[in-house]
């Protein structure tokens, strides 16, 4: 696992530069972003959407938006990578909201194409030791840590979190709010 992550990181693409070239209509630059980021983006989308076809749709739509909006990206106002993933998450969350409203049961996808839900503690273990997110999450109580992690990585709603963790809706809401205050204090 470590090795795989390491390999991904090695072909260092200058995303700022690539987005600038996209804005000038250079398709090779978009392709370079795709080669460098698409597998990770698909992994992020799979965690949110579970189904491969939907996750690929989210990545597809994201790249079309990146191409269309590349000229509006301003490196002075934030990091290129988080800009990319913000587009991806928005798109995936919109698909997720649309889908969960319509999907009364999850039985439409053949086995094997649906990704397993990940345990929040396992996700914790994979967070970088050098980053502040892991250190600051460790200061939260495990159940609260789990709530905020599941919200982000699986896109669970307040109601779904309440059901999953077996606590009232109001409790989930206040857990999340307090966790956010704690994270903000710890991470700034």
């Amino acid at each position: 696992m470590k090795a795989a992550l390491g390999e991904m990181a090695s072909p260092a693409l200058d995303l700022n530069d690539a987005l600038g070239r996209c804005a000038r209509g250079d398709r090779l630059a978009l392709r370079a972003i795709y080669d460098s980021e698409a597998p990770r983006m698909l992994g992020v989308a799979m965690r949110l959407l579970r189904r491969r076809a939907l996750a690929e749709e989210a990545v597809h739509d994201t790249f079309l938006q990146v191409w269309r909006k590349a000229d509006s990206f301003d490196p002075a106002r934030g990091d290129a990578r988080s800009w990319l993933y913000a587009i991806l998450r928005n798109r995936a969350l919109n698909i997720l909201r649309g889908e969960t409203r319509t999907d009364l049961v999850e039985d439409f996808e053949p086995m094997g194409l649906v990704s397993e839900e990940e345990n929040a503690e396992a996700v914790m273990m994979r967070l970088s030791d050098t980053g502040s997110l892991k250190r600051c999450l460790e200061r939260l109580e495990p159940a609260r840590r789990q709530a905020i992690t599941l919200a982000y990585i699986h896109g669970l709603s307040h109601g779904e979190l309440a059901g999953r963790l077996g606590v009232p809706l109001g409790t989930i809401k206040s857990w999340i709010r307090r966790s956010l205050v704690s994270l903000r204090e710890c991470m700034t």
Binding site: C22, R24, R52
Partner: peptide, 30 residues
């Protein structure tokens, strides 16, 4: 940092072709 904990998933071969075809239909802003 949470996004970096997702496992890589290799996209299907046609995904890039579909994206590229989508570009044809919508020229870049510039």
């Amino acid at each position: 940092e949470w996004d970096n904990t997702a496992a890589d998933v290799v996209p299907s071969d046609v995904l890039w072709q579909q994206i590229e075809a989508g570009l044809e239909a919508q020229p870049a802003a510039a």
